[in-house]
Design a protein around this nucleic acid. Structure first.
Ligand SMILES: [Mn+2]
Ligand SMILES: [Mn+2]
Ligand SMILES: [Zn+2]
Ligand SMILES: [Zn+2]
Lengths: 141, 141
DNA sequence: ATATTAGATTAGATATATTCTAATTATTCG
DNA sequence: CGAATAATTAGAATATATCTAATCTAATAT
């Protein structure tokens, strides 16, 4: 049951499972397109408007801090968010800017000479190019 | 001679080599720390204030479009820029947010099944963790 | 059960980053 | 030169995110 899964993961992270916080988490799990804070705010309030902008931002911050959500590194102004599920990489379309998940695969670590005394926590791969839709569009012209 | 190199690369891209545009390019080539637009604006105007904020942004946009500069994908509000030199990856520090270059190495392409009809133009690797300075700081406590 | 406390939410104000507008200046080309 | 095009500018406008201080809610203590 998804509801209980969300509730438990929130509480395991020391966060109360409030209606607003739950809604952000549920929205992210249902929408895999890496929505912005504004889209999440709008989506959460579409049915039953009951979360303020500040709360949406607060909860996103808390969820990221708790490790349940990640902010995707994209150039461009608005942050984009992602419920942390299975590991994956990302593909960003040059034309339409959409951010899509790509199957995860292991990436070789950098040479320790190049790494120096840095400590690597994670490593993410971002592909750029044309998404399926935009590639088709371009081909048909 | 660097000046001529910059001039030529601008003109080859169909951009006039104006004082302001040149200054943005030169600043980026001298400062490898991936400065923000605000830092570039400030840096360019430190000696002889003669570039407006709008022009700094306009030129950054034009240089990115021409492929001479790239915007680094970082989460966080301000865009960070990079003169495109030799290929490299990036390391972003969890603690201080600094963005450092890492030696480039080839990354295996995704399985074509996973790629679908997408067209990959490039692939960049972002490492996260603690930079040399922050790792030392943490160790000494 | 009531009081106390810490956690969460809210509207609106504020801050920050970027883009737009319309006027001006500089450069190119016929 | 004169027209056309490109670039720059100050400041206004927009977009995104955070802060503030008041209020509300839930958890715990008495
Ligand atoms: Mn994702
Ligand atoms: Mn770089
Ligand atoms: Zn696309
Ligand atoms: Zn650091």
């Amino acid at each position: 049951m998804k509801a209980e899964t969300i509730q438990r993961s929130l509480e395991d992270s020391g966060l109360r499972c409030t209606a607003q916080r739950y809604a952000v988490m549920a929205f992210l799990m249902e929408h895999k397109g890496h929505p912005t804070a504004a889209e999440i705010f709008e989506g959460v309030n579409r049915l039953d408007p009951r979360s303020s902008r500040a709360t949406t931002y607060n909860n996103l911050r808390d969820l990221v801090k708790a490790g349940l959500v990640s902010e995707v590194a994209v150039e461009g102004r608005a942050g984009r968010f992602d419920a942390k599920g299975t590991r994956h990489h990302h593909f960003i379309c040059d034309r339409c800017g959409s951010v899509e998940d790509m199957d995860w695969y292991n990436v070789p670590k950098p040479a320790s000479r190049s790494l120096g005394k840095r400590v690597v926590r994670e490593c993410q791969l971002i592909f750029r190019g044309l998404c399926t839709k935009c590639a088709a569009r371009r081909a048909s012209r």
